[in-house]
Nucleic acid binder design. Structure first.
Ligand SMILES: [Mn+2]
Ligand SMILES: [Mn+2]
Ligand SMILES: [Mn+2]
Ligand SMILES: [Mn+2]
Lengths: 232, 232
DNA sequence: ATTTATTTTTAGGCTTGTCTAAATATTTAA
DNA sequence: TTAAATATTTAGACAAGCCTAAAAATAAAT
């Protein structure tokens, strides 16, 4: 069942995780350049590694055609993501880290190899379903709960009221900015108007003052529809 | 103050830590072969690395003369040891790991690079002074509290009563055996007699049944003298 | 349908950390 | 104090993971 070569290196784990993310819910093929950019390496390095991962049957790959995860590759990716998100949750919930301070550390912690450790952390945290950025945490069998009703704040229509359910964790600057303006998971956002030219929107956060959010911000915030504004 | 090349690799950190341990309280010079055995590598690999660490001014080293840590090398070693022991304490105190289950995981966790993380763990644990094996935990400035009165159980005299203050964490089998016979940190041991031939001793643990402990066991247990047995 | 631009792969090289085999120092024993 | 044993270092090699430069494939634009 488990042969000795499923002891994967940190680099291999990072590649698998990133292929999973770029592949998305639709399981699209992932291009060499896309991976190179996300992993901050050169395209030639990606090609090298894809050949190795293919030999280990963790990715499906054909020259010039992009790659995708195999069943076992996806299983590994989900386990790394589980560890990443549980550690982030631990840092925020137990050690009072800010949501902008956890990603870098979790990038290291996600590679710690101990089934017992991560399952204990899971239990210690009370089996959380979402991480501090609103991303779903895979369970120990790799089951993951996408929030079906989630849409981008940039895709909402004027006069609707929505609830923030996730934020893109990739940009430290974004997370700090959201902290500043008081936008967090669970915040209620009323969309007053949209400027067609730059697609910025005018909103209020948790019934606060009206504020403008740029497209660059709104496309990185996941929300769930709550209701239409009542005009009174 | 800090140049960019004090980002040390995992291997370098492990070498420094092991030199610290082998060097001991007396700061003895450490031989190439001793290091090779502990680090489970070949002597030639040790020589290579010592040359690199010397170039980085982390160890003092002269061909054929052994090595020792410099001031900054010792500082690094103490920081790794601090992390190792704090993580072990976390696993035992917060996640209910056994004292025999923590060392392997801590070998990985000790390399996580985040000042904030380890200081938060320290606080979360209430600034513990000793790890689950009774070893002192260096504070954030690298100060370490050796227990001056500690001696090996193998060096105690018959009819004395001692308290267990530490156990050698290196052998999984030893830790499991000690669990079995109910010997833990804080246990009171009465030494009844010693067999000169094999240096085994007859003892009772926490007033339990009399039991024989071999030299191999007793030389791996640290104790503190409490009193002489009263004959009644 | 060519030409041009972009993407991807190959070829060859570098560093880190390891190895084996051979050479050299040091220590121990005769 | 010389010879044998042991400890250590050097020489040369290798895998992993990355790089640059050049070649090849694919996609886009005339
Ligand atoms: Mn993250
Ligand atoms: Mn996250
Ligand atoms: Mn340990
Ligand atoms: Mn310990």
């Amino acid at each position: 069942m488990k042969n000795n070569n499923d002891i994967l290196s940190r680099a291999e784990e990072n590649y698998l995780k990133e292929i999973f993310h770029l592949s998305g819910k639709e399981k699209d093929k992932v291009s060499t350049n896309a991976l190179a950019e996300r992993l901050d390496t050169k395209a030639s390095s990606i090609t090298d590694m894809l050949q190795k991962l293919k030999a280990k049957k963790l990715v499906a790959y054909q020259k010039y055609k992009g790659c995708s995860l195999t069943g076992s590759g996806e299983k590994v990716a989900l386990h790394i993501i589980r560890k990443h998100r549980l550690w982030e949750t631990f840092l925020v919930n137990k050690l009072s880290f800010g949501w902008d301070e956890v990603h870098a550390v979790a990038e290291e912690l996600e590679h710690i190899r101990s089934k017992k450790l991560i399952d204990s952390i899971d239990q210690f945290l009370g089996f959380p379903k979402f991480d501090p950025h609103g991303d779903p945490i895979p369970d120990k069998d790799g089951n993951i709960n996408y929030q079906e009703s989630k849409i981008k704040l940039s895709d909402t229509s004027v006069k609707s009221i929505v609830e923030v359910v996730s934020v893109n964790e990739d940009s430290l600057a974004l997370l700090k900015y959201l902290d500043e303006i008081g936008l967090r998971l669970g915040s209620e956002i009323e969309i007053y108007s949209r400027v067609p030219y730059d697609e910025s929107i005018q909103v209020s956060i948790d019934c606060g003052d009206s504020i403008s959010l740029s497209k660059k911000v709104t496309e990185n915030i996941g929300v769930r529809f709550k209701s239409k504004m009542t005009n009174k």
